[in-house]
Design a binder for these strands. Structure first.
Length: 314
RNA sequence: GCCUUGGUAGCUCAGCUGGUAGAGCAGUAGACUGAAAAUCUACGUGUCGGUGGUUCAACUCCGCCCCGAGGCA
């Protein structure tokens, strides 16, 4: 299986700059792995790299779908990414995945089928039942999944039920089947590590920068162009809070504070995710500059490529 | 200087006719197979401002001191 370089980690940790520097050095192209940068018109709030920041490096999967119409998910991302990756390679360049959406990274680097398409009508139907009943229903068809899932995690309980109703096989059976097949790529994960306090300070500062850069106008424009408040894209941090403010539900200052706080919590969840992934190589970002980090990545990458050549010769 | 009032968890505050304290928020850790920037779970010891006294026992009552807020001079 081929290696795929992935720069993950928390939001505001400086992934993009590292990805660009790395790409310039090794002849790479960056493929975004961010569930929200996928949507158009959300550049400021999702910290999509600007043209200057891209510094001539080709970027992919940014601004590719309609926030009003689309609700993308992991398998759709996977499909798009697989296509882009093979195009990059056909050009003789090295694909560099960069982004903080852990599930999407796994979609490409772990055996995950996502084989049963969701059904909104069925979900709506199930949502009429109370959570207790849903959980009991799940226990009767897929006890392992029921044991794994909390009663209150209605979203996952419904998905587990949906998988069974639509495919005749339980979620647990799907997972077992997936475990037996290879992923698309062998992920080589990197994440930038900061002292928590520093990371949080960077987040707060970046939110202020976003506001100064016109995030409120960006949200206004999206609203004016008919993006519904309950669109998947509008669940993004920064957007849902400012939408609430624009709807007269809270003063701006409070909304901005909530954006900072949710971003901090989000970063924390991302750290939990990458910490739990034994593939992650943590790179100390605090005292090192981008060039040094890039060097470190190159070293690990080289070692991995050689090990791979040795252990799995074609 | 005098009077009033407050000082309890990182923050805002509750509490006890005396039996060494608890909420919200913040924070921390975790889960994650088609919404993932989403969704969900678990976690509450702190010189109760300081110091002396009364008491078997003081965060609670009393004295003095320190700090904050308001008022009167």
């Amino acid at each position: 299986m081929e290696n795929l370089m992935v720069i993950g980690g928390a939001t505001a940790s400086g992934k993009s700059a590292v990805a660009v520097a790395l790409a310039r050095k090794i002849g790479g192209e960056v493929i975004s792995c961010d569930s929200m940068q996928l949507y158009r018109g959300m550049d400021i709030g999702t910290a999509t790299p600007t043209i200057e920041e891209m510094a001539g490096v080709q970027h992919h999967l940014l601004n590719v779908s309609d926030p009003a119409m689309d609700h993308l998910s992991a398998p759709e991302y996977r499909e798009m990414a697989l296509k882009v990756i093979s195009q990059v390679k056909a050009r003789g360049n090295i694909p560099i995945l960069c982004g903080g959406t852990g599930l999407y990274i796994d979609a490409l680097t772990k055996p995950r089928g996502f084989s049963v398409k969701g059904d909104d009508a069925l979900r709506a139907e199930l949502l009429k039942l109370d959570k207790q009943a849903l959980h009991e229903k799940l226990a009767s068809i897929d006890s392992a999944a029921a044991a794994r899932l909390n009663v209150n995690d209605t979203r996952r309980v419904i998905r587990a039920l949906e998988v069974f109703f639509l495919s005749g096989k339980t979620l647990t059976e799907h997972i077992q089947a997936d475990a037996g097949r290879p992923g698309d790529y062998e992920g080589l994960l990197f994440a930038l590590n900061w002292p928590r306090e520093t990371l949080y300070a960077r987040i707060d500062a970046r939110v202020d920068e976003m506001m100064a850069a016109g995030l409120l106008d960006e949200v206004r424009f999206l609203r004016a162009s008919g993006v519904p408040r309950d669109a998947t894209a509008m669940q993004a941090i920064g957007y849902k809070e400012l939408l609430a403010h624009l709807a007269g539900e809270e003063p701006l200052e409070m909304a901005v504070n909530r954006i900072k706080q949710s971003t901090r919590r989000y970063a924390k969840r991302q750290l939990t995710w990458f910490r739990g992934d034994s593939r992650t190589h943590w790179l100390d970002a605090c005292e090192q500059n981008v060039d040094k980090i890039v060097e470190e990545i190159q070293m690990i990458w080289k070692k991995r490529e050689e090990a791979c050549k040795f252990s799995c010769p074609k």
